[in-house]
Design a protein around this nucleic acid. Structure first.
Lengths: 211, 211
DNA sequence: CGGATTTTGTTCTCGCGTTCACAAACTCCT
DNA sequence: AGGAGTTTGTGAACGCGAGAACAAAATCCG
């Protein structure tokens, strides 16, 4: 987030910023920002602030964005299509080296200039490109099988868009993104707003139940 | 998450489950699960566990999934297309009532059976359907403007996929999903794995810097 | 019917992340 | 050169969520 905010500042022509400026741009508290940055080192100057470009480089180096990361996407449905075309990946150092799908109907189709290949090509592709990061955009039922195959080929980081809990061995990182759960959380707050304004007793709320 | 896990259990024909079973299915600690459920009320039976269907209904009612939520999606690029087609929304009570885009080139195009309309139709659509939830899938530069217009029309919950920090008045909820930040977090851990295994001194790590 | 067993609901404790607050350090201006 | 004004880096306090642990309650079985 800080890196993104710094990039935005740099594009506005700003060379230097205070922790307060950057905190506002990133949407966090300035004390938290300073503490976070202090874990990387002392890259600011007291009385002045931070040099935007210098800090940007330091953060980019620390989080590994300076390198190029080959990525494999499995499951080329609606979401897989969107991910393959998502420009934010390439611009942040991620290169989609292969699109895989178990369904032969989509094989050889070109998505974002990359041909869709059979899922069984996974091992060869991972070995060829040294892929460490895999993206799962399959239906929930297929996710665990895909994850197992990924782990077996040596992938150690998985981004999971399937609504399923994945079991993986120690040493493998999994991050889960669930689009509809985000909407559900908003709907929950919406419902509470409506009931709090109207008839608070209509639905037993969390606050009441917790007392 | 619990609701999803319960649905999966129900589809497996399981009528009753313990907090431990459900915790495993949801990928959390069983004590945490019991505490979470206790905020809704005492829906379990000691010595037996939870009735899957009953608990499922209670959670669905509490989080508002039993109602139908009309949703507007603004920004019909790659991501907007995928979101409009995403089946997980409809199956969880969300109905996409309109797709809006500022670009006239995509107007009247049919996406998932819904015609893309001009962004200026926002007010009319929100009023007509009583929309409370908006989804922003535009580029970052357009996001704040879209959010302002949404708030002005009475939308009080926003799901933001644009990589930008949104400023909204009190009473409006914003949730942010950033696809590439998730990949960046994985890449960071990948980098640390590589350096910890090889030459730990090559990159100053957080642990060392924190000491 | 009563003890053994199972499982929930809840209390207590621990650890962690966030925020406050302030000393150290740097710049600017006279 | 020196004081006034800024801003960072960090120690201390706070709040909160997670996990361990246990009492209460229900079932099972002899």
């Amino acid at each position: 987030m800080y890196l993104r905010a710094l990039t935005a500042l740099a594009e506005s022509g700003i060379r230097t910023c205070s922790s307060e400026d950057l905190a506002v741009a990133a949407g966090v508290n300035s004390a938290k920002l300073r503490k976070d940055l202090s874990y990387l080192g002392s890259y600011g100057t007291r009385g002045v602030g931070y040099d935007v470009d210098y800090l940007r480089y330091q953060i980019a180096r620390e989080i590994g964005v300076t390198q190029d990361w080959p990525v494999v996407i499995v499951g080329i449905g609606n979401l897989g299509h969107a991910l393959a075309n998502y420009s934010g990946f390439r611009s942040r150092g991620f290169r989609v080296v292969a699109l895989l799908d178990a369904d032969p109907h989509v094989h050889d189709e070109l998505v974002a200039g990359v041909a869709v290949r059979p899922f069984d090509d996974l091992e060869a592709i991972v070995a060829e490109h040294g892929v460490a990061i895999g993206v799962i955009a399959t239906p929930a039922v297929a996710a665990q099988n895909v994850a197992d195959r990924m782990v077996a080929t040596g992938i150690t980081s998985i981004l999971n868009f399937a609504p399923a809990v994945l079991a993986v061995p120690d040493g493998v990182d999994v991050r889960k993104v669930d689009l509809s759960i985000e909407l559900q959380i908003l709907a929950y707050h919406e419902q509470r707003k409506a009931h709090d304004a109207g008839d608070p007793a209509a639905v037993p709320g969390v606050e009441e139940a917790a007392l």
